[in-house]
């Protein structure tokens, strides 16, 4: 494949940028509906799509050798692995012979109704 065939025209990048802007607008408005599944889908789902488009189009993963795609995919797998191995510890307020006093106090205050999780009540 020649050099020219490897390169996209500028309009291609503008098009991708426009799509990203639209997706950004959707991800901002989605949570405003205050429906949990819509919030999850528009916040995390669209974030994933945007990250994919940036990596593939703007970082030119679609134009690099297969080897680079494997490397990038491997980093994603390792990131998930890291989250999976770390979450059982860092997502808890206590464990074997330890606890997080600030978390426990915050949760107790929330349970007692002293604090609401609604941001505007803070």
């Amino acid at each position: 494949m020649s050099e020219e065939e490897h390169q996209h025209p500028t309009s291609h990048y503008v098009k991708i940028w426009a799509i990203l802007l639209v997706l950004l607008a959707v991800s901002v408005t989605g949570p405003m509906l205050e429906i949990q599944w819509v919030t999850l889908l528009t916040a995390f789902g669209i974030a994933g799509v945007k990250a994919y488009m940036v990596a593939v189009k703007f970082m030119h993963i679609d134009q690099t050798p297969r080897f680079v795609t494997y490397l990038v995919t491997t980093t994603l797998v390792f990131m998930l692995l890291f989250f999976a191995g770390t979450a059982p510890d860092v997502m808890k307020d206590h464990g074997t012979n330890w606890e997080k006093p600030a978390w426990i106090a915050a949760e107790a205050a929330y349970a007692a109704g002293e604090v609401s999780h609604e941001p505007e009540h803070h």
Binding site: T86, D89, P101, A102
Partner: peptide, 17 residues
């Protein structure tokens, strides 16, 4: 810093990963 809601074990995970 656990006193302020942080997690010292998180560093250990980051370091050893």
């Amino acid at each position: 810093d656990p006193d302020q809601g942080g997690d010292p074990v998180l560093w250990q995970h980051l370091f050893w990963f």
